[in-house]
């Protein structure tokens, strides 16, 4: 079983085990990673589970959908590899992936 690392804005790292089929947001919540609010519970409708995927892992994580981008456009911290973690399905191919949390969730 592989793992994914969340890095908080202050540099704190949280390594979480991969549970295939679950969302990246759920992985953060299940492991109490601070900084992921998930106010809508995974509906792609609040923008509070924003993560910035490490560039090397961007193609593995996939690109944001149109609806997702519309939410992400509302945060000033949006970056080229930004995703809403509720829309990223975790797979074994993500073993070793690094994602960063923004300073603030919108």
């Amino acid at each position: 079983m592989g793992s994914i690392t969340f890095i908080e804005h202050d540099g704190n790292r949280h390594e979480v085990d991969i549970e295939e089929g679950s969302s990246l947001m759920q992985a953060a919540l299940d492991n109490s990673v601070p900084g992921v609010d998930a106010d809508c519970g995974g509906e792609c409708a609040c923008g509070t589970c924003h993560v910035i995927v490490d560039k090397k892992w961007a193609s593995v994580a996939g690109i944001a959908t149109e609806v997702e981008n519309q939410m992400l456009d509302m945060t000033p911290e949006k970056a080229a590899t930004s995703r809403l973690s509720c829309q990223v399905k975790v797979t074994e191919a993500m073993d070793g992936m690094v994602v960063r949390l923004p300073e603030f969730q919108m």
Binding site: D37, A38, D39, C40, G41, A45, C46, T48, M71
Partner: peptide
């Protein structure tokens, strides 16, 4: 936090 008071979506 999963309440509706702030609305959801754009």
């Amino acid at each position: 936090r999963n309440h509706l008071s702030f609305g959801f979506g754009v």
